[in-house]
Design a protein around this nucleic acid. Sequence first.
DNA 1: CGCGTATATTCGTGGGTATGAATATAATTC
DNA 2: GAATTATATTCATACCCACGAATATACGCG
Lengths: 114, 114
Amino acid sequence: MKRAFVEEIHQLHAELCQALADPKRILMLYALADGPTPVGELADQLGIRQSNASQHLAVLRDRGLVTAERSGTTMFYRLRYPAVLQALDLLRGVLKERLQEAGGQAECLMEIAR
Amino acid sequence: MKRAFVEEIHQLHAELCQALADPKRILMLYALADGPTPVGELADQLGIRQSNASQHLAVLRDRGLVTAERSGTTMFYRLRYPAVLQALDLLRGVLKERLQEAGGQAECLMEIAR
DNA sequence: CGCGTATATTCGTGGGTATGAATATAATTC
DNA sequence: GAATTATATTCATACCCACGAATATACGCG
């Protein structure tokens, strides 16, 4: 059982986390929970340029987290693994705990931001 | 409820994910599951330099994921939120699914790598 | 206080990342 | 096939990250 393979797994694991390491991409994934969504709509929701939305979606596609389906001229992106949102929720919970322990009263915000 | 606050939450969320976006740090977190561990031991386990281990631990400390406690001259690092490992496990499961769907026969590796 | 051990920090460098602007591709309609 | 719409890609730029080497700090001991 080659050491290189094990390292490769951890590399892929890290790259998966890396895909989540951007506020825009996090918002995109949560937005996709409502079902397949066109690129333009995602861009509008996030208030970013179309090209930027495409770039972020390319990252998510590359990591295998979303799939794209064409319908006419518009591209619908679909969330592939809902478990990703569970993972994000878990980390959000950690963040909430951390902020509470830090003494800030930001807990209320946590309920809303999503 | 200011928009800036909500954006700040997502920024922090992303920074949390960013902390996980490195193979060495993932290994460190899993290693810390066994209880508080000195820096040198972590460095040895991962086969990295002491300074590099300290740097990675500084990132985890900065994101609030670990705490450091001094005992004499050695520093014991402790995992602060076990839920982080749950999140990592969820993502590992996603990775496993993805590799299986991709047709590779790397599933067996997934059982071991940790 | 000087020495050794354990850890932290700084610094330089190479490589990666996010973004807007511009351009390219793809499908639909006329 | 030209015009239109929706999306993708390329490019340049500014910023961030991982690493080793060197240096600094902190503690314990004599």
